[in-house]
Design a protein around this nucleic acid. Structure first.
Lengths: 133, 133
DNA sequence: ATGAATGCAAAAACTTTGCATGACG
DNA sequence: CGTCATGCAAAGTTTTTGCATTCAT
């Protein structure tokens, strides 16, 4: 049960939160918008409000349970925070999202930030790609 | 005069477009929202509509005159497309944006995309940093 | 029991669009 | 002059908020 997962981060184990967490886990390989989660729950016969999805996903983000991304500037998508950090490649033809990790890039980022006298808090890297013709 | 700059990319040299281009050039070191540009023009006594700012900035983007960024997911900012490509560092304490370029990162990006069998169309890299305490 | 969480509807924030008028080439 | 661009206002999207009710502990 995910109940413990929620209590662990100080969130009451309410039904909507459990359902949303289930959806996110069941779609661990995808990036879902708030609307996507909402539709999935409505389709499953749950009685939930879109506002709750937004509120809960924001709480999950703060708790480190999910990550929020803005691949396009129009709407946010969420993915469950599974294991190690990774960045994303978006296929502009299909919309598909591919995950990748490159230690070299991570290392350079840290070096650059150091050199400017800052601490790195986080980063967002998205590569926009096309199928090779 | 910027008239030629506009005609060069196939845009009629209208007054609003010239004014907007001026603002962008005068603030080449900043990242302005559509609202910022709008206010600057209103303050300068120009009679312009916010819708025009959005339309023109979108055209400028398509023409390669400006670049659009989404540092946060809430609103777009624009900067004049000056010289060579660069990425951005956002100071989360102050909101300041610092530009940087790293050939190593660029190179790795190309290599990663190659390895996945794609063509790189573009990328978005933002480092979120904090003042060292 | 009691404070937190929810659903609904309304509002907010940003951006786009329809249309009549006005400006560019 | 014909067309394209503009301003205004209205509509569209996505996300947030207020409030009465319900739920978890």
């Amino acid at each position: 049960m995910d109940t413990f997962e929620l209590k662990k981060v100080g969130l009451k184990a309410t039904l909507p939160r459990l359902r949303i967490l289930e959806i996110m886990e069941r779609n661990a390989d995808r990036h879902l918008s708030a609307e996507d989660v909402y539709k999935a729950l409505i389709d499953a016969g749950e009685d939930v409000g879109l506002a709750t999805i937004y509120r809960v996903l924001t709480q999950f983000e703060a708790a480190g349970i999910v990550e929020r991304h803005n691949f396009d500037g129009n709407h946010a998508v969420f993915e469950i925070a599974k294991g190690p950090h990774h960045d994303h490649m978006v296929n502009v033809d299909t919309g598909h999202v591919i995950e990748f990790f490159d230690e070299e890039i991570e290392k350079r980022q840290r070096a650059i930030v150091e050199a400017h006298g800052f601490d790195l808090q986080g980063h967002s890297l998205v590569l926009f790609v096309k199928n090779r013709t």
